[in-house]
């Protein structure tokens, strides 16, 4: 059969979300950020809340998230997205507010902000990208860097006695009364992408129902700073990150 018989508007089954802009993402080839951005766009479009959604971008690779989703955006100082989100949601209780943060931003410099926003049960969505490294600044150790993992500031591998232990902040926020939904997902294969999308949708719905803070960790690959090709990085993530950061819901109420 001629391909042109198939490629017709009426046969389109997977179009690009209208919430995504046409700007080419600055992320490296194979970066997980792009998939998560796409899922956010799809959920916002499917829930028809583009006119009521306010995103907060972090400092780190995702600082430019505001170029890729056509919604209103605030660009926060390093680690402070939950503070901006708190005020925004309290001042506009009927809007959807999400903070998008990386591991250095959320689990290192912004530890106080995320713990207290979650503890207050702010009705926000937190998207936490954990790739165990500082991407934007060139591959330094993150709070979530695995023991033994080489980074530019742990060139011989992370050692617990020198650098402390990788921080499971997701398990930590799950302990807090204010969180209603805490889950850990990934986006390296179609099944996981679908699960992550369901989680994001659920988080936004929780926000509308004012159930408290929804926190979604996405275990991600940073192939450039891990110094691997994209496909190999995803495999390394499955073999090394998933055992320490197991996927699945930690809390759902």
């Amino acid at each position: 059969m001629d391909i042109n018989e198939i490629i017709k508007p009426e046969n389109l089954v997977y179009p690009k979300s209208k919430v995504l802009t046409d700007t080419v993402m600055h992320y490296c080839p194979g970066c997980s950020h792009g998939v998560v951005h796409k899922l956010l766009a799809e959920v916002i479009e499917e829930m028809d809340i583009q006119d009521r959604t306010i995103g907060i971008s972090p400092v780190g690779c995702a600082v430019f998230a505001y170029n890729y989703l056509d919604i209103d955006w605030q660009q926060a100082a390093h680690g402070r997205a939950p503070a901006l989100a708190t005020a925004t949601k309290r001042l506009y209780p009927d809007k959807y507010v999400f903070a998008y943060q990386g591991d250095g931003d959320l689990a290192s410099i912004g530890t106080a902000e995320i713990i207290h926003a979650c503890n207050r049960g702010e009705n926000i969505v937190v998207i936490f990208i954990n790739n165990a490294i500082y991407g934007m600044t060139g591959g330094q150790m993150a709070p979530t860097t695995l023991i033994g993992m080489k980074t530019s500031t742990t060139p011989y591998g992370r050692k617990a006695e020198l650098n402390g232990y990788p921080l499971k902040i997701t398990e930590l926020v799950a302990q807090l009364e204010g969180t209603c939904y805490v889950t850990r997902q990934a986006v390296e294969n179609p099944a996981n992408v679908r699960k992550t999308k369901k989680a994001i949708r659920k988080a936004f719905e929780n926000s509308a129902q004012k159930k408290g803070t929804s926190f979604i960790e996405i275990v991600a690959a940073c192939n450039s700073n891990w110094k691997m090709p994209p496909v190999e990085a995803n495999k390394w993530m499955e073999d090394n990150m998933f055992p320490f950061y197991p996927l699945g819901d930690i809390k759902d109420r």
């Binding site: 198939i6 089954v13 690009k16 194979g30 796409k38 179609p190």
Partner: peptide
């Protein structure tokens, strides 16, 4: 191209959303 079933997996995992998928019943 003969092998494509239009399952959409490629588009779902694509980080840059550069793939659109078409599908027909046969």
């Amino acid at each position: 191209p003969d092998k494509c079933t239009g399952c959409g997996n490629c588009a779902i995992v694509c980080p840059d959303t550069v793939i659109t998928v078409y599908k027909i019943k046969i």
